[in-house]
Amino acid sequence: MTKSLIHARGLTKTYGDFVAVDGIDFDVAKGESFGFLGPNGAGKSTTMRIIGATSVRTSGTLTILGKDPEVNGPQIRAHLGVVPQQDNLDVELTVSENIFIYGRYFGLSSSFINKKIPELLEFAQLEEKKDTKVQALSGGMKRRLTIARSLVSEPDILMLDEPTTGLDPQARHILWDRLFRLKEQGVTLLITTHYMDEAEQLCDRLIVMDKGKIMAENSPAQLIKDYSTKEVLEVRFGSDKNHEMVEILRPLAERIEVLPDRILLYAEDGEHLLEQIAAKGIHPNTSLVRRSSLEDVFLRLTGRSLVE
């Protein structure tokens, strides 16, 4: 295994009595696309800020490219491209001015940055908007510009905190495509998300976080294999009848989860399970067979849904 780019042991962050990150261990290898999956408040963003050397850990060890962010904050930040959850583009400047000045903050020469700008604008599909003030851009464009801006310093690690939250489906797919290209170019990606589809699309490996702790760590496919069945049968009987049906259905499925509006039955073959249920003379109002997802993994690990 290659030497890890990011190495964390017992990483902890507390704010007074509140434990935001509770002694987590992880390693990220070069070129890897590494995800932090969990609901809001799981400690993902705090972990990202500590890695980004804009937050000081309470205890534990952390090295990024062999450097300690507490000692070498500015040197570590020079290696990173940061795409924060809330856009912080310079609203008073145009699209290309935003990229230009961001490069200058790193101390890069104007000639170097000016050579890079057309390439970054093309990557972000913003060539036609280069002289537009940022305020006039759509949400998806702003996010793409934030990514382009973060690439001006040619970072070794790109950190994306909830990159597609608040974007419409089309804008999300464009963004995923761009991130996939970066991954192909060998950029190490660090992504936090509470969208399971995003984690499945983009991450080679991920940790599932809840309440500051790591619940599981693996590739998306392996996590699904380890913590869920191949398929899920979702059935609805109407909210008042769901509960009484649970006991009847429980012996038939490998595992069962009751959500407010539906029952999830875990099985290797969902269609077959549905036939068994029908054979018992039980007919749900609606039924759906689907493949297991990270949502099911999360439900299994924490007993709660990812998006509440």
Partner: peptide, 14 residues
Amino acid sequence: ESRLYNAMLATSLG
């Protein structure tokens, strides 16, 4: 409001 200093301090500026 514009969170401009957040952006500046995410770079190697101090």
